Computed example of a mutant assay.
Amino acid sequence: MKIDFHFMDFFILGIILIIVGIYAYFRYREEKHKEEKMLIPNLLSYKDRYLKEKDMYKERAKKFLSMLKEVEREFEDLKRNIKNYRWTEEDKEVLRNLKGTEFERIFTVMFELLGFKVYKPPIFKDHNIDVIIETKEGHKICVDFVDYTERKKVDEKYIKNLIAGKEKYNCDGVWFLTNRFLDDDVEDIIYKYDINLFEFNQLTQYFPSYRIVYDYDDNRTRFHNFELLYKETRDEVIRRDLWIKEVDEKISEIKRKRGEDDIKD
């Protein structure tokens, strides 16, 4: 079936499309006007929300800062109360069985808590030296940790190597720490080279219990956690300050533009 379109049909269709187009245009202008009219109130609502969030994060930051200071006070108390960390029989049994890196780390931390500066030699275990400690007076001491499983390797050659390390790093002395006891002939060699020997009995006499290191680790872990939380909340405060500034700038820009438009009209 063939459909014929006449000029009148096209004319009517054109009129309908024009009417629809005009209606759509005015609807668009109306919505655009509403949107522009609500732009500043919407921005102000964002600003109000950011201000509330900023206050919330400031309170959190204040709380974490307070916790940081409390943990730091605990740390200072820990250092002041070193003498209270006495060795119990249970502690001594733990000491007897410390191995390798655990033995080294525990007493390295103790040196730090006792006020020594602690350095690692540039070359790992160079000349059998595990750490170099420095006193408040500036005297440097080479330190070697030998746990109970490694005592058999200590002989005169081993000790001479330590002495060579002492000369290399310009140390004023050598300390040899072990958590059991050495054979008499090995002790004689150590004393022959003027090395300070700290065996099991000397460790429990001159150093605090290893428990102080565990308390130190717990304290420092909490400190770093609160430090991270404090930084994160402070960052959130700074971020809100930036967003509030951007909102204020946007509102000023809109008001300025509207003022210019009014002048043109």
Rank of each mutant, 00 (worst) to 15 (best):
E156W: 08
E156N: 00
K157A: 08
I159M: 06
I159T: 10
I163H: 05
I163P: 10
A164D: 13
K166T: 09
K166C: 13
E167A: 11
K168F: 14
Y169P: 01
N170G: 10
N170E: 15
C171P: 06
D172L: 05
D172E: 14
D172Y: 11
D172A: 05
G173S: 13
G173A: 13
G173I: 13
V174G: 05
V174T: 11
V174S: 02
F176R: 03
L177P: 01
T178V: 14
N179A: 10
N179C: 03
F181T: 09
F181I: 03
F181H: 13
F181P: 00
L182D: 02
L182I: 11
L182R: 02
L182C: 07
D183R: 12
D183W: 09
D184A: 12
D184P: 11
D185H: 13
V186E: 03
V186H: 06
V186G: 02
E187G: 04
D188F: 02
D188L: 10
D188V: 11
I190Q: 05
K192I: 09
Y193L: 00
D194K: 14
N196Q: 10
L197N: 01
L197Q: 03
L197S: 10
F198S: 02
F198T: 02
F198D: 00
F200D: 08
Q202Y: 10
Q202F: 04
Q202M: 13
L203D: 05
L203Y: 06
L203W: 07
T204C: 04
T204S: 06
Q205L: 14
P208S: 09
P208V: 07
P208A: 05
S209R: 02
Y210C: 01
R211I: 04
I212M: 13
I212T: 00
I212G: 03
I212L: 11
V213Q: 06
Y216H: 15
D217V: 01
D217E: 15
